[in-house]
Amino acid sequence: MQTITSLFVNRSQRDMFNVLAVLLLLQIAAAVALVVPWDFRAPEREPVRLLTAMQDATVRELQIEDMQGNVIHLIREDDGEWRFNDFDGYPASNILSDQLIEDMVELDDARPVTQTAGSHDRLRVGEENFERRLTVTLDTGEDVVAYVGTAPLPRATHVRAADQQAVYISTDLKHREVSTQITRWLDTVYYSEGQNDIREFNLTNPNGTFSFKRGEDDQWMMEGLAEGEVFNPNNLISLVTTVSTISLTRPLGKQELPEYGMLNPQAVATFRVQDDDEDEMVSIVIGANTERANRVVVKSTESEWFVEANRFTVDRLIERTRDEFLVKQPAPAPAAEPVQEEVPAPVEEPETTPTESE
């Protein structure tokens, strides 16, 4: 006969086993829920598009806003090219703009989160509290508005059509795809040229004017060397690298403004570009500092637009001195002081004392 103690122990073991079994089943269910694709868990009904007005219309304008007052406003031309509404129509990225429009068209109601307005602020999809507000203007003249909110998953966001209360989860719109950073929506390379195609280079800055040419052996030579001076090409090559690719931080526009400092630039680099198809002179003008820290105005003769660039990328053009293009000569050794010969001191003869006999 089992004792009361043994019965209690066996029952406790069975209870613990049952608890562990339940926990194991819950873990398996959670793992399956994470692994199985969303499409397998979606409702059987066909999802309904959220922004139905966009389905058969052409988008003419796109605006992206955040709560900090940043706005990206893009215009779609008749030829399908995208441009900024600001900056005198600076070219925008066609690929990224078209992709965002396609993603907005694909938004649907397959994954509902809430049907009431009470959660809008918490999910950041409210009219006055949002992560992003997207507004597209159609060729019909209608504006379609959608809100992008918080991210419940690494590659998903909460979304809401402005004319609906319901909020849904979407994997079509990620935060980086609705950025309000200007550089997200354009090619940041303002000017680019192959370094080997630059055959002559002239630089004018506060330290003077310096001119260089490539010889027949493709090696750089400095003009105006004085007797005994030796050219150091390394610091020139770094300048050629600088002007061969100029990146912008934002476009400014086509109109030259007095504050751009073009009448009194900090530096002007003019160089000859030669290849199989062209032989032309190009100038890169470094104007005034802008109101933003460590930014300067830049203008290339190859572009209609003035742009802003990071100052550190063009500092070499502004600060390079003539001595930096020369091989440093060793300082002359100080002249040796003449050696004076030591004159021996005269030897004094000892005095003799006379004796009594004398």
Score class of each variant (00 low, 15 high):
residue 149 G to K: 03
residue 149 G to N: 05
residue 149 G to R: 03
residue 150 T to N: 11
residue 150 T to G: 09
residue 150 T to R: 12
residue 151 A to S: 15
residue 151 A to W: 02
residue 151 A to I: 04
residue 152 P to Q: 06
residue 153 L to S: 09
residue 153 L to N: 08
residue 153 L to D: 11
residue 153 L to R: 12
residue 153 L to F: 07
residue 156 A to H: 13
residue 156 A to M: 14
residue 156 A to I: 02
residue 157 T to D: 06
residue 157 T to A: 11
residue 159 V to F: 07
residue 159 V to A: 09
residue 160 R to Q: 05
residue 160 R to P: 07
residue 161 A to V: 07
residue 161 A to M: 05
residue 163 D to N: 13
residue 164 Q to C: 08
residue 164 Q to K: 13
residue 164 Q to L: 14
residue 164 Q to V: 12
residue 164 Q to R: 14
residue 166 A to E: 15
residue 167 V to C: 01
residue 167 V to L: 01
residue 167 V to I: 11
residue 167 V to T: 12
residue 169 I to H: 06
residue 171 T to M: 00
residue 172 D to E: 13
residue 172 D to C: 04
residue 173 L to I: 15
residue 174 K to N: 09
residue 174 K to A: 06
residue 174 K to H: 07
residue 175 H to P: 01
residue 176 R to N: 09
residue 176 R to D: 14
residue 177 E to M: 09
residue 178 V to P: 00
residue 179 S to A: 13
residue 179 S to K: 08
residue 180 T to P: 09
residue 180 T to N: 05
residue 180 T to F: 10
residue 181 Q to V: 04
residue 181 Q to S: 08
residue 182 I to K: 08
residue 182 I to H: 03
residue 182 I to T: 13
residue 182 I to D: 00
residue 183 T to I: 13
residue 183 T to D: 12
residue 184 R to H: 14
residue 185 W to L: 09
residue 185 W to I: 10
residue 186 L to A: 04
residue 186 L to C: 07
residue 186 L to D: 05
residue 188 T to Q: 14
residue 188 T to N: 15
residue 188 T to D: 15
residue 189 V to M: 07
residue 191 Y to H: 13
residue 191 Y to Q: 10
residue 191 Y to S: 10
residue 194 G to L: 11
residue 194 G to P: 04
residue 195 Q to G: 03
residue 196 N to H: 12
residue 196 N to L: 12
residue 196 N to I: 11
residue 197 D to H: 13
residue 197 D to Y: 12
residue 198 I to R: 04
residue 198 I to H: 05
residue 198 I to N: 06
residue 199 R to D: 09
residue 199 R to C: 02
residue 201 F to C: 04
residue 201 F to Y: 12
residue 204 T to C: 04
residue 204 T to M: 01
residue 208 G to S: 04
residue 208 G to T: 03
residue 208 G to D: 03
residue 209 T to C: 00
residue 209 T to Y: 02
residue 209 T to S: 12
residue 210 F to R: 02
residue 211 S to I: 03
residue 213 K to A: 14
residue 213 K to D: 15
residue 214 R to Y: 10
residue 214 R to L: 14
residue 215 G to N: 14
residue 215 G to W: 10
residue 216 E to H: 04
residue 216 E to S: 10
residue 217 D to V: 08
residue 217 D to A: 11
residue 219 Q to I: 01
residue 219 Q to V: 08
residue 222 M to A: 13
residue 222 M to F: 07
residue 223 E to C: 04
residue 224 G to T: 12
residue 224 G to Y: 13
residue 225 L to C: 01
residue 226 A to Y: 04
residue 227 E to D: 15
residue 227 E to P: 01
residue 228 G to V: 10
residue 228 G to F: 08
residue 229 E to I: 05
residue 229 E to S: 02
residue 229 E to M: 02
residue 229 E to L: 05
residue 229 E to G: 00
residue 230 V to G: 00
residue 231 F to M: 02
residue 231 F to H: 02
residue 231 F to C: 00
residue 232 N to C: 02
residue 232 N to Y: 10
